[in-house]
């Protein structure tokens, strides 16, 4: 099976063509709000470099969020546009799953943390046995102190790794909340910065597995997973 994978949850857009054997091609661009303009050319480019075409694809896997509202919306629109009437499978991959999956070699707890802006962190909690990753919690948007409380509550007895761009704004707060004496046994670490970004190849890899299980989306109803802002924020926003 061959999939086109789209990752556009952040400032960088990435497209890849993947098959069971691995990544056939991959291309990254700093989108800065121009994902739509650049996206189509990039899709053509990755398909060309993979020596394939739209007609030879089995589906499109797209990073569903949480993340940048505009990025996710445009990414999904591109995916839906490609799938429209072509009988290609549309596969949605939760973005936090993709971040966690990329750290699957870590035995213990994996906590992807994304900067949700407005003082919150998108996170969930995963456990890996060194190869198979399973999710233990919902996809959430939490204030740093609530996130720390949740991590302390869930992760004990195995090493915990935090990975994601929320480490930039909240690294100090998280480190003091989870550090020595705070009860995170047997301790935690931050993944190196180069591992924070979501990769299209991982979105594609998870997409292949989901497609194998028949877990495809209906393009008519598929929506990005925004994860709603907290209640106070919503009230202020809706007036």
């Amino acid at each position: 099976m061959r999939l086109l994978a789209i990752e556009s949850s952040g400032k960088v857009g990435e497209f890849a063509v993947v098959a069971e054997g691995g990544v056939l091609s991959e291309s990254t661009v700093d989108v800065a709000g121009r994902l739509l303009e650049k996206g189509i050319a990039m899709v053509e480019e990755v398909l060309g470099r993979a020596g394939t075409s739209l007609g030879e694809l089995d589906g499109v896997a797209v990073s569903m969020g949480p993340g940048s509202f505009t990025g996710l919306r445009v990414g999904l629109a591109i995916a839906k546009g490609i799938c429209f009437r072509r009988e290609l499978a549309l596969i949605g991959v939760p973005t936090l799953d993709a971040i966690a999956q990329a750290r699957s070699a870590h035995t213990g707890f994996i906590v992807p943390v994304m900067d949700a802006r407005r003082g919150e962190i998108y996170l969930s909690i995963y456990r890996s046995d060194g190869s198979v990753v399973s999710r233990l919690a919902d996809y959430l948007a939490l204030k740093p102190d609530a996130a720390i409380e949740m991590i302390l509550g869930e992760c004990g007895g195995s090493p915990t790794v935090l990975v994601g761009d929320a480490i930039t704004p909240y690294g100090d707060v998280l480190a003091s909340g989870l550090g020595p004496g705070a009860g995170c046994v047997p301790g935690f670490e931050f993944a190196p910065e180069e591992a924070w970004r979501v990769r299209a190849r991982v979105v594609g890899q998870i997409g292949l597995a989901l497609l194998g299980e028949g877990k495809v989306l209906d393009p008519a109803t598929a929506e990005p997973m925004y994860i709603r802002p907290s209640e106070a924020e919503r009230k202020a926003g809706r007036g």
């Binding site: 709000g33 505009t70 445009v74 999904l76 629109a77 839906k80 546009g81 009437r85 393009p219 008519a220």
Partner: peptide, 16 residues
């Protein structure tokens, strides 16, 4: 109507 709605969603994706 389903296809019309789907086109609306694709259209919505390109708006700013």
């Amino acid at each position: 109507p389903e296809e019309t709605s789907e086109l609306g969603k694709i259209m919505g994706g390109i708006l700013t």
